Computed example of a mutant assay.
Amino acid sequence: MNVLAQVSEATGVPADLLGGYPAVLAAASATGRLPARDTIEELRARGASAAERGVPMRALVDACLLTAELTLRSADTSTLGALRRAVAAYAEGYEGAQHRALREEEAARHAFIDDLLQGRAERLAERAEHFGLRLAEAYVVAVARDTKPIADGDPLIRRIEQALIARFGSHNILIAARDGLLVCVAPGALTAATGEFAHHVRAALASEWRVGIGRPHRGPGGVVTSYREAGDAIRLGDRLGLRPQVLKAADLLVFPVLLRDREAIEDLITTVLDPLAQARGGPEPLLETLEAVFAAQGNQTAAARRLGISPRAVTYRLERVRRLTGFSPDDPTQRFTLETAVIGARLIGWPSRDEG
């Protein structure tokens, strides 16, 4: 049995990956010369081939050393130098192939995420399986916003993804950066995943973070829908000044309903709230007071604490609202009308800064 066959049998490394290597060692031992550049390039290429074929680096190094042991009867300085250069070439080629594979995988992942969140369906289900997603199932999307955009390559992406996989033992969770947001795509059946995502966001991001969570939907288009719902939840929270930092689209369904009939909501605002523009200081303090009272379920003392004013000031402002508009927050029917008008005002940005 020749040297390469012995090494291959002992280490499991295919003999063709070592072809030419024994000759390199023998030539160095006989002449004292180190391997030429073209020989090093050939060994580097074989190292890359080993990586592409899934041969472990430890096995490859072991094969190189065993080949040297079987080939050389004595190890002089030149031979050891050739051995060192040959092993370095194998390792360099191997690592280069691994790095290229990682870059290609990351590029494929980035392209897949872009296509997934934009609904481009070219081989999407097939590609999704490569990343552990089965799009026939329902998926839910959560997005997190920080004070500054979150970019590809942020260590936070990998850290949170590893934490979720460790917690749930599942690889069909995807964490990525998209449009400056941190995005989490998780199976709808894994109901705790979005809560765990929000937990890690809370621990990692600045105090002004906010998380939006879409509803579960099936299919590639379902992921897009849930992603848009999650982003809309954050935008609604900002527009309405909502205090919770984690907002679920399912809890905010009434607001898109209001926006669908813009003409009706503008008519409601004009009828109910326009008289507040006559108040000294403009309508904003009265709108803020109404919002605080509604949020406190009508408790004026709690509303005063939220606003940082006295309960008497809250009572005075509510009386001003009643006198100017004819609507009282104490009357159940009128309260509903007032609250809907105030929500609509925040949704469409009434009053504008120019008007205020």
Rank of each mutant, 00 (worst) to 15 (best):
R323I: 07
L102F: 03
A30T: 13
G169I: 09
T147C: 02
I40S: 06
E288G: 08
L259R: 10
L247S: 13
A204L: 08
G81A: 03
L286V: 02
R215F: 00
D38A: 12
R84A: 13
Y316I: 15
I234P: 06
E41Y: 01
Y227W: 06
L258K: 05
K248W: 14
D76H: 07
E52Q: 12
R103D: 05
S328T: 07
A108H: 06
T289P: 11
L174C: 09
V342M: 14
A23S: 11
S226P: 04
L273H: 10
L70M: 10
H200N: 11
D152G: 07
A249H: 12
A136R: 05
G221L: 11
N172G: 13
L72C: 11
I348T: 14
R46F: 02
A177V: 03
G326L: 06
A144F: 05
L252R: 14
A63S: 01
A101G: 08
F327I: 01
D16I: 02
V13I: 00
Q6A: 11
I157Y: 09
I213G: 01
V223F: 01
A249V: 09
G344S: 15
A345L: 14
A91W: 03
P187F: 06
E355K: 14
G180A: 00
S328P: 06
L133P: 02
H130P: 00
F336D: 15
R218S: 11
V223K: 00
D114W: 01
A121R: 12
A63E: 03
R218E: 12
A97T: 04
G241M: 03
D146A: 15
D115Q: 11
Y90V: 07
R159G: 15
T271W: 10
G93M: 08
T31A: 12
A5P: 00
H200W: 07
S78N: 02
T77Q: 10
D232N: 15
A23M: 06
L182R: 10
N172T: 09
T225E: 08
V143I: 09
G231M: 09
G119C: 14
D238W: 05
T67L: 04
N2D: 15
R100I: 04
